[in-house]
Design a protein around this nucleic acid. Structure first.
Lengths: 144, 144
DNA sequence: TATTGTTATACTCTATAACTATA
DNA sequence: TATAGTTATAGAGTATAACAATA
């Protein structure tokens, strides 16, 4: 967990934790106020899958089913997702995006990331590459 | 905001947002259940400063004063921080860690980061370095 | 009057436990 | 009886608006 560098051993986990915590706070604070980060993330997963059960979605997002029920209920109230019973197994609920959901997802993703993208745009190509690589390492690390 | 690479332009902000969101979820979920990430982060800032006002602390943590009041109230209830009026300006509240606070901070930081550190330990030195560099770029980007 | 912090209020995110419906 | 999802409940984290105390 320690990496030697110019100034001695580095607590990688600690540095990463602080950076992640503060980046999340900023991303939340900067939000467009219509769709939350959690909802956006869920919608992105639904879009990627096309259609999937609530349980699968909860697993992919690493949250418990009751948490996902809430997210989906809100998105359904907004008219952004559809829910229907699986014809083969009435216990399961199949979730997908509505047309409006696809539109809003694209629009929100742009708006939501505008601030971050704006900070990033002046970075060197090398720094951008570092951020992308670190993101990929993280996704691998946390199992997604 | 786009970085050309082998497979075309990359949405750096988007990739980073997803990675950050999921890493935070994992870090919260893995927590030791006594002290939260927010409290831990506040305590680390207090320790770094030695003693500081509630307002300064809120600014460093990028939260509003009422949010920090809550965090400090909880930590005070736990006996981990002291609050006293600034003798030179009765409006201000000076916050510092108690002995127990220092102990718990050290212990919690270890426990809390253990999971992440465990994932990280098998990475190549190069990947570790990438995570550290990305963290530093992020901290610079979000203004801390 | 301006500043610092607190209280009141509200909303999101998340979890666990208990319940319902279906298999 | 086992599984998928929902409802009930609770606590953390955060914000804005209104207030109190001090300068």
């Amino acid at each position: 967990m320690s990496t030697e560098s110019g100034s001695g051993p580095v607590n990688v986990a600690g540095v990463l934790r602080v950076a992640t915590t503060r980046t999340m706070r900023r991303l939340r604070a900067v939000g467009a106020r219509r769709i939350t980060l959690t909802q956006l993330s869920a919608m992105a997963s639904i879009q990627a899958a096309g259609e999937l059960t609530l349980g699968e979605l909860a697993a992919r997002e690493h949250v418990q089913p009751p948490s996902m029920t809430r997210v989906i209920t809100t998105l359904h109230d907004y008219g952004l997702v559809t829910r229907k019973s699986d014809p083969n197994d009435g216990r399961q609920v199949l979730v997908s995006l509505t047309d409006k959901g696809h539109e809003i997802l694209a629009e929100e993703a742009r708006t939501r990331e505008a601030w971050l993208a704006d900070q990033i745009k002046d970075l060197s190509e090398e720094d951008k590459q570092t951020l992308v690589e670190a993101s990929l390492i993280l996704m691998r690390l946390i199992g997604e």
